[in-house]
Computed example of a mutant assay.
Amino acid sequence: MSLARPSSSLIITAPWRAAAASKADQLPYNYRILMAKRVGGGSFENAYVFPGGLEESSDSQWTTSSHKVCAIRETFEETGILLTSPTTTAPKNTDFASLCANRTLPDIRQIGRWVTPREQKKRFDTRFFLLSIKETDTQLLDQIKSAAVQESELVRLDWFTPAEILQANLAATLPLFPPQFYIVRELSRWRRWQDLAHDPLDLGDTDKPIEPLLLKHQEGMVSLFPGDKAYPESTTERSPSASLDDCDGPLHRIVMKRAKTGGFVECRLLKQLPSDPAPKL
Score class of each variant (00 low, 15 high):
residue 63 T to G: 02
residue 60 S to T: 09
residue 65 S to H: 13
residue 74 E to L: 09
residue 69 V to E: 01
residue 52 G to Q: 09
residue 53 G to Y: 11
residue 51 P to E: 06
residue 51 P to G: 06
residue 67 H to S: 12
residue 61 Q to I: 08
residue 70 C to G: 03
residue 51 P to L: 05
residue 76 F to G: 03
residue 58 S to E: 14
residue 53 G to N: 07
residue 79 T to C: 11
residue 75 T to H: 05
residue 52 G to V: 06
residue 71 A to V: 05
residue 63 T to R: 02
residue 58 S to R: 10
residue 65 S to K: 06
residue 51 P to V: 02
residue 80 G to H: 04
residue 63 T to A: 05
residue 57 S to W: 14
residue 67 H to G: 07
residue 58 S to I: 08
residue 77 E to W: 13
residue 54 L to K: 08
residue 73 R to I: 07
residue 74 E to C: 08
residue 56 E to A: 09
residue 66 S to D: 06
residue 68 K to H: 15
residue 71 A to G: 09
residue 56 E to S: 12
residue 77 E to F: 13
residue 69 V to C: 04
residue 78 E to K: 11
residue 56 E to V: 10
residue 69 V to R: 01
residue 80 G to C: 07
residue 74 E to H: 11
residue 62 W to K: 00
residue 59 D to T: 00
residue 76 F to H: 09
residue 79 T to P: 07
residue 64 T to S: 06
residue 57 S to M: 14
residue 79 T to F: 11
residue 71 A to L: 06
residue 66 S to N: 04
residue 52 G to C: 10
residue 77 E to R: 13
residue 72 I to P: 01
residue 53 G to S: 13
residue 80 G to W: 05
residue 78 E to C: 14
residue 73 R to S: 10
residue 62 W to S: 00
residue 56 E to Q: 12
residue 56 E to C: 11
residue 51 P to F: 08
residue 67 H to E: 12
residue 60 S to Q: 10
residue 54 L to V: 09
residue 60 S to A: 13
residue 52 G to R: 01
residue 60 S to F: 12
residue 67 H to A: 13
residue 70 C to E: 03
residue 61 Q to V: 10
residue 69 V to N: 01
residue 68 K to W: 14
residue 76 F to I: 01
residue 61 Q to Y: 13
residue 78 E to V: 12
residue 69 V to M: 02
residue 62 W to Y: 11
residue 61 Q to M: 11
residue 51 P to R: 03
residue 70 C to A: 11
residue 73 R to G: 08
residue 79 T to G: 08
residue 57 S to R: 14
residue 72 I to E: 01
residue 79 T to M: 04
residue 80 G to R: 00
residue 77 E to T: 11
residue 65 S to A: 15
residue 55 E to T: 02
residue 58 S to Y: 14
residue 58 S to W: 13
residue 76 F to Y: 15
residue 79 T to D: 08
residue 63 T to L: 03
residue 68 K to C: 15
residue 74 E to Q: 13
residue 62 W to P: 00
residue 61 Q to C: 09
residue 65 S to Q: 11
residue 73 R to V: 07
residue 79 T to I: 06
residue 70 C to F: 05
residue 62 W to A: 02
residue 80 G to P: 02
residue 55 E to P: 00
residue 73 R to P: 08
residue 53 G to K: 03
residue 59 D to Q: 02
residue 68 K to R: 15
residue 70 C to N: 03
residue 51 P to A: 08
residue 69 V to Y: 04
residue 63 T to V: 05
residue 53 G to F: 10
residue 67 H to W: 13
